[in-house]
Amino acid sequence: MINFQQVSKTYPGGHTALEKVDFHLKTGELAFLTGHSGAGKSTLLKLISVMERPSAGNVMINGVDLNSISKTQVPFVRRDIGMIFQNHRLLARHNVFDNVALPLVIEGMHRKNITKRVHAALDKVGLLNKVKCYPETLSGGEQQRVGIARAIVNSPPILLADEPTGNLDPELSWEILKLFEDFNRHGTTVLIATHDLGLIARMKYHNLTLNKGKLLLDPLKADIS
């Protein structure tokens, strides 16, 4: 599903964020992306969501080379990728419903269907009773779940999460991870960047570890692929 082929990324100014990264995440897989701050986790996710372009190598999604995607096509790529951020990135001026509905509104879906889907997504994350609330009135864990509902509302085949449990206590983090597991069971390919190693240790999943822009060997790789 997500295939990196000798991908390097050097930022203007000479900082090398990724160096010859090579991996293949298969359809329906759930994997963690770990490493210290500045190891290149965010850069790797940005390359998948076409916020950055690789300096060398190819990023393929479902067999399509992202280098061949033009600027005007980028929004359509992003519609196939659900993204979850550490700081939620919700729209403060809009309520929970409008926040979750945003991807559907952008696609031009009919109002009737939007309501149905938003309610289904909020139900999945257990926030159906907060439809009319504004993000700032919610707790951190709730805000994160709204962000997750927005990412899955149009049922994308790929889900990317950047430090989704960054600000949450272990119990809430565990709940969030359970949510991701649930989506994965329904066939979504999930990639979660995190430095919460204790959390990962409890779960037996594919683990990509970045160190100074290089991918370390994955001890679990043999078991999974």
Binding site: N62, Q73, R79, D80, L104, E107, G108, M109, H110, N113
Partner: peptide, 16 residues
């Protein structure tokens, strides 16, 4: 229309 997933119809246009 989806660029990456040919079989995945746009959420908006799958009915009309």
């Amino acid at each position: 229309m989806s660029l990456l997933f040919k079989s995945r119809m746009s959420q908006a246009s799958n009915t009309d």
